[in-house]
């Protein structure tokens, strides 16, 4: 891990401890819990998209698998939520192997469509397997998680816990990027054939990252189920997969911090916009959640057209450009 990354982790930790002191409103804390879960999923997806160069348009399926594993195992079989979380992650990893081994041989558009089809099938199973998943009615009364005997039943306690998991996930991902595996992955992204000829086992790395990203998503899904205590198929559809890809792409898929920032920005954006419209309500501008899709689509399109490296890279380039410009002016002034 680079020194910069440790610095970043500390900043995240400080912000997380400060936020509940600044924001009293339980509703906003809840939104920030969902933000943390999106961050977790997006980190895994970023490893897959930005580092291994493979797109997945079906990641909400793994998110859903985690959530349903927790829901089914804790409610129907009365397992501990922790064991359910682990079991969900193992199952998601298994599914990732079954789907990933043949899919990752595919490239580009084929892979996108295969993962899209996979995500759609899993969503159909959530809706149709009524005996197991409760169908459209979902599963209610999912128990809270408890940590060292303390039940994480308040939004605030879960807020700390979920962000602690994010920091842990971030720490792991950053270490991975700066390891042999990470360098191998970047080589794959550059050129799969060149990496292969240098002895990087491309197929194996890709499948490992796919499994890892599935586990990240599954853990996020399990936490979602324990936090909301109720799940139905709604949040695990194809649209959510697309939204996850949007978050990663907007922040910048070649940088794990970019994915994190993208996830945070897009998770709180709808809330921010509706707040803003309440503020401007007097002048006849009102925001309505129906516009979310237009906003997300517009942002994604604009970023992909004008800043294909994402926001983080765009800002970095802009800063570098302005530093250089300032330096040039200085040099000219003094010479």
């Amino acid at each position: 891990m680079a020194q910069r990354d440790y610095f970043g982790l500390i900043i995240v930790a400080v912000i997380v401890t400060l936020i509940p002191r600044l924001i009293e409103n339980e509703y906003y804390i809840g939104i920030l819990v969902f933000t943390a879960l999106n961050c977790l999923t997006c980190m895994g997806l970023c490893l897959l998209m930005g580092y291994a160069g493979q797109i997945s348009l079906g990641h909400s399926a793994f998110y859903g698998i985690g959530a349903y594993a927790t829901g089914i195992l804790t409610v129907t079989l009365a397992w501990s939520p922790w064991i359910a979380l682990g079991a969900g992650a193992c199952f998601a990893a298994l599914v990732a192997v079954v789907v990933g081994v043949p899919s990752l041989r595919l490239k580009g558009h084929y892979l996108a469509m295969a993962t899209l089809g996979f995500g759609a099938i899993v969503h159909i199973v959530f809706v149709a397997a009524v005996d197991l998943t409760g169908g459209p009615n979902g599963i209610a009364r999912i128990p809270h998680l408890d940590l060292f005997g303390i039940e994480l039943s308040t939004d605030k306690s879960f807020f700390y816990f979920s962000w602690a998991v994010v920091i842990l996930g971030l720490f792991f991902a950053l270490n991975l990027i700066h390891s042999r595996v990470g360098r191998g992955l970047r080589a794959i992204h550059g050129s799969q054939d060149a990496a292969g000829s240098l002895g990087v086992n491309t197929a194996r790395y890709k499948i490992q990252i796919f499994i890892l990203s599935a586990v990240y998503a599954s853990v996020a899904g399990s936490l979602y189920a324990s936090f909301v205590n109720y799940i139905d198929p709604g949040p695990f559809d194809v649209m959510h997969s697309v939204l996850l890809v949007t978050m990663v792409a907007v922040g910048g898929m070649h940088n794990i911090w970019g994915a994190l920032i993208g996830a945070v920005l897009l998770s709180i954006l709808p809330e921010f916009l509706s707040e803003l419209s309440d503020y401007f309500g007097g002048v006849g501008i009102s925001y309505n959640p129906d516009y979310d899709m237009l906003i997300y689509g517009g942002i994604l399109l604009a970023i992909m057209l004008f800043l294909p490296g994402g926001l983080v890279e765009g800002i970095r380039n802009f800063l570098r450009f302005s530093f250089n410009a300032v330096a040039k002016i200085k040099r000219r002034a003094f010479s």
């Binding site: 890809v245 949007t246 899709m293 906003i295 517009g298 992909m304």
Partner: peptide
């Protein structure tokens, strides 16, 4: 025109069209 970028762009257009249709 990289493949990943084009995939995401057509996805973005599909969200935009879908969102417009819904509105």
């Amino acid at each position: 025109p990289t493949v990943m970028r084009l995939i995401i762009i057509t996805v973005a257009v599909s969200i935009l069209l879908k969102g417009s249709a819904m509105c």
